[in-house]
Design a binder for these strands. Structure first.
Lengths: 198, 198, 198, 198
DNA sequence: AGTTAAGCGAGACGGTACGTCCGGTCTTGAA
DNA sequence: TTCAAGACCGGACGTACCGTCTCGCTTAACT
């Protein structure tokens, strides 16, 4: 009785709501955005939002997916054969995106909810983190097959090491996100903390 | 007229408020805790909270500092001479703490606010992150001097690599926080992603 | 956007609010009645009160009208042909009403607000004072036509003289409201202060 | 223990408080005046007000007495031998005063409290109403002795008839306070409502 | 093609919490 | 002891949103 019929859903309303949500977050900040604002900005009844999304976080998540370009929006990582250079390129692009106001605020919004809502976190892992992670692992696997990475390397740990520190800096603002930092990070991860043998 | 006189401040009230804040966060979760609840739980007028803290986040931050044991509460990191073992020990202790409900919820609360409030983030960096980071760097510096770490290693990056991934896993729940993961992480960071030369 | 749509108004809530208002005034006195109390006593959200009434005074006014029986609740004044007797009857009934706790407190409440709120005072004059005054003037006009009152008498002044002093005594408690006072008043007003010629 | 020692009372503070009270009532209206405002406007601690006055109404009452010129401030009513003329003179002066902003607001404030506070009402009757009433009765008594008023006239009722309607008009704003109204009132009261015999 | 039932914009409703204001009490230090 | 100053507990203010609930209207889908 309670589950609405998706075939009758108004696409116009759906898009208007997601757009309004992103606009408002960018304008006034996530915590100050109210469902009522989104509804009135989208020219939509409140019930239409509550009918299709269980929470503001879930709505923001969908809105964010829209922004990220959908499930097939992200291409493979570049592979020039030079692993360090490729990684630096990708990470530099990442920090540009993280500092683009159009992405920064909604992404922070999303992370706020993830911190407190395990269900949403699971959704995040499945629909955003894992696909991205797979792309990253693909590139690393290629390098591993080419003998550029240790044969017994755990690629998940490798991804964590390369991308985790950047996400942390961004979330906690523990330091500036510069190209120098990124380059330094890649070099250090690749070679390890220990002194070189050669 | 607006800045209150700190010498007249009631210590009883201050402590009652911080205690109530921690208790309530542990009980019902950060987002459901209202200033009104804290006030009534602490037997205090709302104004007494608003007089001394600018926001719920700032209050939580102070409460969290109380919990963390104050400025001088954290001792040096262990130094047995075996860097890998020492780091694993510290990181294992860290993940135990992160999963202790008494720390987990307030710490998530704090991070929620940090994500959105740059002022609070700055405070966090200065009063929590930097002191801890200094301790970690001290241990790494000792290892560096002993020739166990590369002479040109950036210790800040090293700290990011060792502790960042764990914080990420915890915040985003991208994976379980196990001893195995921690050990694996330390080994990988120390030796780097590249194949061993020997 | 600000004016609510009256057709959607909940009659249940409206009545519950007015009833609660009267009950609480009778119980604890007007100045101690808070909008919050009325709302909770009526089982209603505060906003539902603020949506339809601009002030506590305006709400009390409506509640008082309910009590007074509505616009057509008051019948004509009696006319037995004996003007003095009829007036005494009406005035005696008036002082009974003024001393009935069910009317006394809300009416005082109303007057408190009228003293300070010219808009409310205008409403009072139009919706309560004038209709009553018209009834009184009707009776006096009949007497005037019958030659019992001076042909050039200003009926408004006459009404002021007959009913004003009673209202004053009641409001300011300058003296007791007794039948004797009322009778004396009517006689004195009718005959004037000057010595009789006969 | 609770009654303060009046001999130690600071006259400076007392006067400053009463002045501040009157000023603020004139500025922002009685209901919007807070004890805190009066205290800070008078450069006085809140406690100094609470020490000497039991309520805002009582304070206003004292302030109003200050304004009215003190206990011996009011002289006898004029007596030219022409009662009607003398009364019209006095009543015209009264309506001028009632419409003087300097008196209007504090006097309304006083009446607001009197309506609800029997103790204050008793004080008002004793310290303001009765002295004034005595002066009025003195003038009427002189006229009575001169045969200008009925020998059996109740002077209290006479005072009520002459001054009550004006006070009502002022409090309830049921009509304008003009010289014409006043003159008409005096004439009607003196001669009564009935047709003249002559 | 006409009927029905869903989704829709709108917005009133019972609530909860906000951040502010003020009431009345209590404490401190100076005069 | 009074006073100026002002922190304290309590409680109401008027506002903002929550999530639920009708209302008519529009629009598919199923007789």
């Amino acid at each position: 009785m309670s589950t609405p019929n998706p075939t009758r859903r108004s696409e116009t309303a759906r898009v208007a709501i997601l757009d309004a949500a992103l606009d408002l977050v960018a304008e006034v900040g996530y915590t100050k955005v109210a469902i009522e604002h989104i509804a009135s900005e989208a020219g939509v009844g409140k019930q239409t939002i509550y009918r299709w999304w269980p929470s503001k976080g879930a709505l923001m998540f969908d809105a964010f997916l829209t922004l990220a370009g959908g499930p097939d929006g992200t291409p493979e990582l570049p592979d020039t054969g030079d692993l360090a250079a490729d990684l630096k390129l990708v990470l530099r692009a990442t920090i540009v995106e993280l500092q683009d106001p159009r992405y920064d605020l909604p992404m922070r919004a999303l992370h706020t909810e993830i911190v407190h809502d395990p269900a949403l976190a699971a959704d995040y892992v499945k629909r955003l983190d894992e696909p991205m992670r797979e792309l990253k692992k693909n590139r690393l696997r290629a390098a591993q097959n080419a003998g550029q990475l240790a044969a017994d390397l755990d690629l998940d740990v490798a991804v964590d090491l390369l991308f985790g520190p950047i996400l942390n800096r961004w979330l906690q603002r523990t330091g500036p996100l510069t190209d120098e930092y990124v380059d330094h990070l890649v070099d250090t991860v690749l070679q390890g903390l220990r002194p070189r043998k050669d």
